[in-house]
């Protein structure tokens, strides 16, 4: 993504004119956006603006669209190996800043260091990202304003009542908007919304010995892995070989995994590195706020809140961190 210098200047598009934008976007691939099924909000294919639900944050993430649950790495048939050569083109529409930044996080790991992840690259290059700015937090679990997010999108929409203020964030976004010939709308900027949930510090490495507080979270934890499956930045996977019964064909497959399971760190010989729930619970948060920034110079968590919203026992790790910070003051 060739990003542009951030500017607050944008164009105006009436909400009754959204079909024009969507028609232009269709050239860039299949439209995927937040659709409500009466119970759950999820990212799925749509064709008309009216089908979308632009209130609230999707329960599930869009990571399936660039980091599929089951990714075939190669197929073999006894004579030759084949790999996936074609990747879909898709427009992710109405992503919130947290989910856009989650893609930036995935890029750090899979694209911006060698070796690049071949299949991730394939999916990622087919993506066009259209963001929707949050005027307010979507629910009580959002804490994006604590996470130092950046402007990361091809296009971003700001709701201005009966029209959108539209900004381009990349050369591709600019190219799309130029085709629409919209009226300039001057500068417009909006702060990150802040809700009830705030992370008082991200420097949690200093709490390494505060196990009594961490234990409160671990005690409630079911090791169900909902948090990591729903997290847009969790990108851990397992690699397995699968075969046909007659053993003539098979494939190597990459599948989502989770550090919340004991078997995640099971190695040959039967040793498990993170045997206790406490270690696993701590590791997840440490990966987001300590290990990843050490290597990639940005936080891994983007504050979308899904790991708390979707946790069956609603373990509030933000509250735990704040409690530890409070104790050290």
């Amino acid at each position: 993504m060739n990003r542009l210098q951030h500017s607050s200047d944008g164009l105006a598009l009436g909400k009754d004119q959204m079909h024009r934008l969507l028609d232009a976007l269709k050239e860039y691939g299949e439209l995927i956006g937040p659709v409500h099924d009466g119970q759950w909000l999820r990212m799925q294919t749509f064709s008309k603006y009216e089908e979308l639900c632009l209130k609230g944050i999707s329960w599930f993430t869009s990571k399936e669209y660039f980091f599929p649950q089951r990714q075939v790495l190669f197929q073999f048939d006894g004579h030759s190996l084949t790999r996936q050569e074609e990747f879909p083109k898709r427009v992710l529409f109405g992503l919130r800043l947290c989910d856009l930044n989650a893609i930036a996080v995935n890029d750090k790991l899979f694209l911006e260091q060698e070796p690049q992840h071949r299949e991730y690259k394939g999916y990622r290059e087919g993506l066009t990202l259209v963001g929707l700015w949050c005027d307010e937090v979507q629910d009580k679990y959002c804490f994006c304003s604590s996470m130092e997010l950046e402007h990361f999108y091809d296009i971003c929409l700001y709701d201005r009542g009966d029209y959108y203020h539209i900004k381009a964030g990349s050369e591709k976004g600019q190219e799309i908007l130029e085709k629409l010939q919209l009226l300039p709308n001057g500068p417009y900027e909006k702060e990150f919304p802040t809700g009830e949930m705030k992370l008082s510090t991200k420097d949690i490495a200093k709490f390494f010995d505060k196990n009594q507080v961490w234990q409160k979270g671990a005690k409630e934890c079911l090791s169900c892995g909902d948090c990591t499956t729903l997290c847009p930045t969790c990108m851990c996977f397992d690699v397995q070989d699968e075969v046909e019964v007659d053993l003539t064909k098979g494939f190597r497959i990459q599948k989502w995994d989770s550090c919340m399971y004991k078997d995640f760190t099971l190695v040959a010989g039967g040793h498990v590195y993170r045997n206790t729930r406490l270690n696993r619970f701590k590791h997840r948060i440490y990966h987001k706020l300590v290990y990843f920034p050490q290597k990639f110079e940005r936080y891994m968590c983007t504050g979308c809140g899904r790991c708390i919203r979707g946790c069956p026992t609603k373990i509030d790790w933000i509250g735990l961190v704040n409690e530890m910070e409070g104790e050290t003051q």
Binding site: F60, G225, T229, Y261, P312
Partner: peptide, 21 residues
């Protein structure tokens, strides 16, 4: 078979959690 709970597959299928309901 790696030991995972039913929730793992359930989330992959984007069921949306029944406990939430």
């Amino acid at each position: 078979v790696a030991a995972k709970p039913i929730c793992y597959e359930c989330n992959l299928r984007e069921r949306g959690c029944l406990l939430e309901q």
